[in-house]
Amino acid sequence: MAVTGLLLIAFLLMHMFGNFKMFLGEEAFNHYAGWLKGETPDGGILYPILPAGAFIWVFRSVLVLAVILHIYSAVTLWMRAKAATPSAYKARKALAQTYSARTMRWGGVILAGVLIFHLAQFTVHSALTAGSFGATYAHSPYKMFVGEFQQWWMVVIYAVWMLAVAMHLRHGFWSAFATLGANTSPKAFRVLNACAWAIAILLYIGFIFAPVAVLVGWIH
């Protein structure tokens, strides 16, 4: 749970950083996208250690594996908790549980659902709402990005989704480090929680920045 979660957080940071290339213009962004897939003339990332275009599949495999293991661990924990709960309290009041902690499980399910849409949209290109890949966006992920996020309701969907992601991370980040044995003093508790907040806020702002920029016309 912890290891895969942290791996996914690391991916999100990279993803967010990549998105910032939107501000450098179409050429830079498209080059970056192509480079990841090994489509650029220089053979792309990690060429020639790996054949051109191989890296992206290794990368995707690791991510898919991480997601599967993450869900598997979550389901296992969920099942154990269910088995350990014979009947619910008639009255129950939480004293320490945060909203993020309480929504980890159903929140995770919702996140996964939107993730499928997101992949269908930007990776498989089967769920593009503002146009079709072949005609308008051919070989320009930049245009695709702009096209999709010029629709205000798409930005709203993403803003809500990213809020859910940020909340999931807020508890997830702290919890992952606690599980890995980093929380061994009250001070460590404070530091980990502060970091969790910082990373959740950073990711939220970082991810929502480019779509908002598209919407308000900074990027076009």
């Binding site: 154990r80 350990a84 320490a96 902690a101 980890m104 508890h171 702290w174 919890s175 599980t179």
Partner: peptide
């Protein structure tokens, strides 16, 4: 048959 810990903190509270 105890559940797993997910670092919620109700116990300590």
């Amino acid at each position: 048959g105890f559940g797993g810990c997910t670092n919620i903190g109700e116990c300590a509270a």
